[in-house]
């Protein structure tokens, strides 16, 4: 089995983003970037399936500027076998990313594509589902457990009411939730080894996909700031304030 893992370069989850003063976008200059945490979980899952002998090859793909190659190298250091970088300076939206990924799926013919459920910058939660629809594949989204059963897989999904398990036929798309696994740290020898793993670079413009979206960003503003409140001395004061000042109980 071959597994394809799309990974996104995104803001580090510890960093609080700032909005540009002209409200044109967020300001990412000099911001610490990393592999999107859900994509890291996706890489980990693929590598574990390989280690269990259930997959032969793990291919990672990232779409974006040249800097994405850092995140591809990170994924290779975590155990992926080779990388594909689809280079573009344009910032793409989910449908366009999904269309490019579909081309990669057509070329690589993976049995399983594992994506993150959500990128923590756009908070879109779309790409995996769109890719699945474009490829006519079933999907197991928000996965907390994946079990391979021959030509189908069982995916346990984190849903609003609890957990749901679905069976889906391969080839399929899975998107990861937080509790699917705990990603490992890349060891120094593996980071060194990753530098020699193959990384193929392609231009996004060569795929015959329309890269611009019909959705335009009008402006980006900072959220309304909450006024920090007061500290209360004890439980009695808290209850009094909630009853008589805030009037919420």
């Amino acid at each position: 089995m071959k597994i394809l893992v799309p990974v996104k370069r995104a803001i580090d989850y510890n960093v609080k983003v700032r909005v540009k003063s002209d409200q044109s976008d967020v300001d990412l200059a000099n911001t610490k970037m990393a592999i999107n945490p859900f994509c890291e979980i996706a890489v980990e899952e693929a590598v574990r399936l390989k280690e269990q002998g259930k997959a032969e090859e793990v291919v990672v793909v990232s779409i974006g500027s040249k800097a994405c190659q850092e995140q591809i190298r990170t994924a290779l250091a975590l155990g992926a076998d080779r990388g594909i970088h689809i280079e573009t300076e344009q910032s793409l939206q989910s449908l366009q990313v999904a269309k490019l990924l579909k081309k990669v799926v057509e070329e690589e013919k993976p049995d399983l594509v594992i994506l993150g459920k959500q990128s923590i910058d756009s908070d879109n939660n779309q790409t995996g589902q769109m890719l699945a629809a474009l490829c006519g594949m079933p999907q197991g989204t928000f996965a907390s457990r994946v079990v391979i059963n021959g030509d189908s897989i069982e995916v346990t999904r984190e849903i609003d009411g609890g957990l749901q398990t679905v069976a889906i036929k391969l080839p399929a798309v899975v998107t990861t939730d937080l509790r699917l696994n705990e990603p490992r740290y890349a060891s120094l020898p593996n980071i060194m080894k990753a530098k020699r793993k193959p990384l193929e670079v392609k231009a996004a413009g060569d795929f015959g996909v329309e890269l611009s979206s019909k959705v335009k960003l009008v402006k980006v503003e900072p959220p309304a700031q909450r006024q920090g409140g007061v500290k209360v001395a004890d439980v009695a004061e808290l209850v009094d304030k909630l009853k008589n000042e805030a009037k919420v109980i």
Partner: peptide, 10 residues
């Protein structure tokens, strides 16, 4: 977007 640290109009 960005965990609510920015609000986008689209």
């Amino acid at each position: 977007i960005y965990a609510g640290n920015a609000i986008a109009t689209v």
